[in-house]
Simulated scan of single mutants.
Amino acid sequence: MQRGVRFRLEGEDWLFLRTWHDGFKDFGPETLFNLTQDPHETTDLAPARADVVAHASKLLADWWAEQAALSDHDVDPLMTVLREGGPYHTRGELPGYLDWLEQTGRGDAAAKLRARHPEKTKGEATLR
């Protein structure tokens, strides 16, 4: 589950994504791409460009505040889904997905997911 903002800064186009739930994909909490130099979004610049991340975070927060003020509801649907356990298609599916990753030679990806989601892998049976 993500929200993002696309913007122009320093004469270049940027894309910033804030991730609340990674859907068991390889997304960190903040991702930044320079679309002018990297249109295929292959290099995450968030670690190296804290200044641009701060600018983008403010743009996203300002957008959210504007939308919240206009809404007829006092609950953000994104927060509702998070409280329900995340995206429906991921609920209870991590153990099977980890097994599939390992069976298809991607144990490194499975290990990363286990590290990022320890609360969802507690008590799981050995999947090998």
Rank of each mutant, 00 (worst) to 15 (best):
D108H: 12
R128C: 12
P118F: 07
W14R: 00
A110E: 00
Q37D: 13
E41K: 08
Q67V: 13
K112Y: 09
G86F: 02
E41Q: 11
Q67P: 00
R3D: 11
M1Y: 11
D74C: 10
A69E: 11
N34R: 04
G11Y: 01
F24P: 00
K120C: 08
L98E: 01
K120D: 15
A61F: 06
G92N: 07
Q67C: 14
A125D: 15
D76F: 12
E66N: 13
T121A: 05
T121I: 04
W64V: 14
A69N: 05
D72M: 12
R116N: 12
R114T: 05
W20A: 06
G23T: 07
R49T: 06
H117C: 02
T19Q: 02
A48Q: 13
L60P: 04
W14H: 01
E84Q: 12
G23H: 07
G107W: 06
E10M: 09
E102H: 12
G96I: 07
K58R: 15
D108Q: 14
H21M: 10
D22G: 02
G96L: 08
R18V: 09
E30P: 08
D51T: 04
D76L: 11
T19N: 02
V81H: 05
L15E: 02
L94K: 03
A46L: 02
D62L: 04
E41W: 02
L17M: 13
H21Y: 15
F27R: 07
F27T: 03
P47G: 04
A56I: 01
A125Y: 13
G85A: 02
P47I: 02
L59K: 00
V52R: 02
H73R: 15
A125K: 13
D62T: 06
R106K: 13
E124G: 14
A109P: 12
H89M: 11
H55A: 11
D108F: 07
R83K: 13
L101V: 03
Q37M: 11
L82A: 06
A46K: 00
L45T: 06
A54R: 09
P29Y: 13
W14C: 00
E41M: 10
G105E: 01
T80L: 13
L9F: 03
A61V: 05
K120L: 15
L78G: 07
R83E: 09
L78P: 06
E12H: 08
G92V: 04
W64Y: 12
Q67M: 13
T19P: 00
W14Y: 07
K122M: 14
A69K: 12
A48E: 15
K122P: 10
G123K: 05
L82I: 10
A46R: 01
G11M: 03
H89V: 11
Q67W: 11
T104R: 08
P29G: 15
R116M: 12
R18E: 07
F24C: 03
H21N: 13
A54H: 08
K58W: 12
L98K: 00
T43C: 10
P95Y: 00
F16E: 01
Q103G: 10
L78Y: 08
L113F: 03
